[in-house]
């Protein structure tokens, strides 16, 4: 069996994420899909505030960095100006689901023809691992030292469920904690990009991703935690595909 695996052309430099961070995998998957679809020259990405801003230094497409939480609004402005381009956002759970929840939901509600990629690692990474909307109950973070208490902080937010309220083109949740799910996640991203380029409507791929640094774990422990704890709360799969009503 002939297997060829090359670092995608759309990656132009090493990334500067922490060891074992899932961002590097997600970015590589995006680059692979863009290479395969021959879309890198027509792609415009909108980066969030947080670790995702580091994507500027590694992904070779036109990129802008949005204000915190507003990436999908900016992406909608870009897409409506240049409907022939592929427009995606790259956001963390803090950006897309906490401060940017209104922009996220209303981009879906308006069925903006963009792809939102949310990398969900359950913490605010860049600022040092504070509790985020997707932090699990009981999970210790810099702002929930004794573990997230649902009495005080409420329960984690399931963004796929929220987005399912709207008439969207595609909603899927993948994970990059093991090889099989990495390959599935790549397919989700590809499906989202294809649907966008067909003009279908709002597409969103949430990706469960390890943050060993802020989980205070080794990379091995972090992927084990996803398999054993995180996926119970955030089941994987395609939630909306093809039922889109226009």
């Amino acid at each position: 069996m002939a297997i060829t695996k090359q670092i995608p052309d759309t990656i132009f430099a090493a990334n500067s994420f922490c060891p074992g961070c899932g961002h590097g995998i997600v970015i590589r998957l995006i680059a692979e899909v863009l290479d395969e679809m021959d879309l890198s020259d027509r792609t415009i990405g909108v980066l969030a505030v947080g670790c995702s801003c580091l994507v500027n230094r590694t992904l070779a497409v036109d990129l802008m960095q949005s204000a915190h939480g507003r990436a999908t609004a900016a992406a909608a402005g870009i897409k409506r100006t240049r409907p022939g381009n592929l427009v995606f956002t790259y956001q963390g759970d803090g950006d897309a689901i906490s401060i940017g929840i209104a922009e996220t939901l209303y981009s879906a509600q308006r069925d903006e023809k963009i792809t939102q990629i949310i990398v969900n690692n359950g913490v605010f990474g860049m600022t040092g691992g504070q509790m985020s909307p997707t932090t699990l109950v009981g999970q210790r973070t810099a702002t929930s030292e004794k573990g997230r208490n649902s009495e005080i902080n409420g329960d984690p937010v399931n963004i796929m469920k929220l987005l399912s309220q709207f008439n969207t083109a595609y909603l899927a949740r993948g994970s990059v904690h093991d090889a099989a799910n990495i390959l599935k996640t790549k397919q989700y991203i590809r499906t989202a990009f294809e649907l966008q380029m067909r003009g279908e409507g709002f597409t969103c791929v949430e990706v469960i991703s390890p943050c060993p640094t802020n989980w205070h774990m080794t990379p091995d422990q972090a992927v084990e935690r996803i398999a054993n704890e995180v996926l119970e709360v955030y089941p994987l799969g395609e939630f909306v595909k093809g039922e889109h009503q226009k």
Binding site: Q6, I7, G24, R28, D178, A179, I182
Partner: peptide, 30 residues
């Protein structure tokens, strides 16, 4: 960083390392 090395006698070029690597370390050509 402590870096990884490959034992070329054992490697079959399956590409698994490429798939799970976050840091664009591996390239494999058949």
């Amino acid at each position: 960083y402590r870096i990884v090395t490959v034992d070329r006698d054992k490697c079959v070029g399956c590409g698994m390392c490429y798939t799970v690597c976050p840091d664009y370390v591996f390239s494999i050509e058949d």
